[in-house]
Design a binder for these strands. Structure first.
Lengths: 215, 215
DNA sequence: ATCTGTGAAGTGGTTCACAGCC
DNA sequence: GGCTGTGAACCACTTCACAGAT
């Protein structure tokens, strides 16, 4: 695994690294072997020196006078991000969204295996969804220990998100992907990422409205 | 509609406004009528003066010595964001994700109506999904004009995302919510927001890995 | 007395510009 | 000659600290 040179890495850098991988994978699929920071920057909608600086946090992955070998750069970045391995996850909240995610093949494809599904609704417990038996949330702790899980996914309604988070933290999980439309509070050593595409729709709404007002 | 005082609004401010609304709505549901910036900041995981500054871009919504009235603040922020109205959207790419979104009731509930579904696969054209007939992507332009649509949602595979974007831009759309794992290029006056929860999983992966390495 | 709104100070991320290497 | 890697300059957002309002 690749280790960073520097102590602190900007959050924005990590987000961009994920973008770079995405774009590079598409470039590779289209048959591009080598690319320099300038065209890659254009494809990613960032500044070229931004890319070079982001990568410089972790090492020297390019060849001066040449550029970056696409395939090897993908490998380097995925190694930096720690996604060149398998991760085991559990999902809490088997509603519509939860079911959709459990059935989403892309998770396994990208190395994020959902190995447990939990809900506190007695009517759902015991049900089988996408090959997993829905288990009572109370049993999260034992199961997480058994299954060697590090990431939890919350897909509960907002009012139950914090309780789900508490269970996950108690079970020793290290990262939470929260789809519930609510903020959650967790200890410092647990990482939380929020996914809410309405936030993005709000941003579009604002930009379109504001843009129009300035004409 | 609320209009900003200042010329340029930081992107981060808009993202936070969406968070504030989310948290305030949950507070309202729990029966909180008034809140000051300090506890609101805690609930949103930001600095209190950050909130006050964010709001100050758009007006004075608080009462000195008292705080903010939750209900009225929600109304002010949604007005600022332009989400206190209905938006009409179309979706391009009726795959698994597209279908899930078409069936997702939350869109209508939050004022974002999906009024058209498009795909270029002849086998899907004519099919009915969630009360909408799937139409050939070629007919996007006429339909968008008829239906008075301003936002497009892309749920195609990555290799077809740019083409979908081109069709949407050509049809005169002003904003795009892109779920496809690919960057797209559009004219300056069209806004794009990207949704990719694998990026968030990558961020978790990095943080957990990096955190562990520093012990 | 309390809490907002805001200029000023501080901080951190981005961009520039060029030295270093292929 | 071309492109990376990187210190320095720049810029923007964040935080502080306090004046102003109730």
């Amino acid at each position: 695994m690749q280790t960073p040179k520097s102590e602190h890495i900007p959050r924005a850098t990590i987000q961009r690294l994920a973008v770079y991988v995405q774009v590079l994978e598409n470039l590779l699929r289209e048959g591009t072997d080598v690319i320099s920071s300038e065209p890659l920057a254009k494809a990613c909608n960032v500044n070229a020196s931004q890319i070079r600086k982001d990568l410089a946090y972790f090492g020297e992955f390019g060849v001066r006078g040449v550029g970056y070998y696409v395939k090897s750069l993908i490998e380097s970045i995925t190694s930096v991000l720690g996604v060149n391995r398998e991760w085991r996850t559990v999902l809490v909240g088997v509603g519509n969204l939860g079911r959709a995610l459990l059935n989403h093949k892309e998770f396994k494809l990208r190395g994020f295996h959902i190995v447990g599904a939990f809900d506190c609704d007695p009517f759902k417990i015991g049900e089988e969804v996408s090959g997993l038996e829905v288990v009572c949330t109370k049993r999260l702790k034992e199961k997480v220990a058994d299954l060697d899980v590090e990431i939890g996914i919350i897909t509960t309604p907002p009012e139950r998100a914090q309780r789900a988070a508490n269970h996950l933290v108690d079970a020793g999980i290290k990262g939470i992907l929260n789809f519930a439309p609510a903020r959650i509070t967790v200890p410092d050593d647990v990482f939380v990422e929020y996914v809410d595409f309405f936030h993005h729709l709000y941003a579009l709404s604002f930009n379109i409205t504001f843009d129009r007002a300035n004409r």
